[in-house]
Amino acid sequence: MSWLVDPFADFAFMQRALLGCLAISLGATPVGVFLLLRRMSLTGDAMAHAILPGAAVGYLVAGLNLGAMTLGGVMAGLVVAVLTGAVARFTSLREDASLAAFYLISLALGVLLVSLKGSNVDLMHVLFGTVLALDDAALTLLCAITTFTLVTLALIFRPLVLECADPRFLASVSRWSGPVHFLFLGLVVLNLVAGFQALGTLMAVGIMILPAAAARFWANSIGGMLAVAAAIAAASSVAGLLASFHAGLPSGPAIILAAGTLYLLSLAFGPSGSLAARYWPRAHLEA
């Protein structure tokens, strides 16, 4: 058992990494569950790319400064989210097409800005994260974003569920439809920014979507899915960090691969809608 506990007991950087990853697991996975249920799984990926120019501007202006890069990332993400949502609501273009257009523009801008400063090792941190070197400011930011996310989700839970399940009905009984949509996109951006501190812009989406996709094979209710997804994300974080510690693997990809393994296992053996449930069904009932 010591290999399981000792790395976290003996090394402060492992404790910080664990805290950071658990914070992300709690905040990003519920957002991922709703992305999945709204059939917007790839939106997270597109958003992660959209954030890049903002982080790059922050980096160009202030160097490898957490505050500047976070602010830049959030601004870029929110601009793309608002433009995308507005185009989808007020023109005939669908949300996926409008998001694709804006994130590609944003990504090109980001790559252009990054190349202005020439190649730099620090920038690799933005792309691939620094979960083993989280400082106090980064940890505080991660925990603050998770807290904000959970409180906001609790407040908008009912309108958000209805906006996913029956948007036309929500629009007919209340004015929540627009606000809840934009609030939710805001949470997506915030959690991606939180994720890129630890896992990098490319990996942040993984901890958001993989546990949510896995949870669909275990639960038939939203509450169940949220709980399972958070548990899978937390387990993947622990497993990934341990693999990283013992085998000297890069931590970000190790965590995402752990989540990916759990996803594949769920896909094969989960009780609801999995391959096993389809091809080896349990005995059926009388009525």
């Binding site: 908008i156 029956d166 009984v173 209340s174 209710s221 899915m225």
Partner: peptide, 26 residues
Amino acid sequence: SEVDRSFPLAVGAFVAMGLWHRVGAF
């Protein structure tokens, strides 16, 4: 209807949303 029938929601909870004018969002 634009109801997403694959959404994991129980009949009772779905029908209860007809009470929106009484219970609202909270």
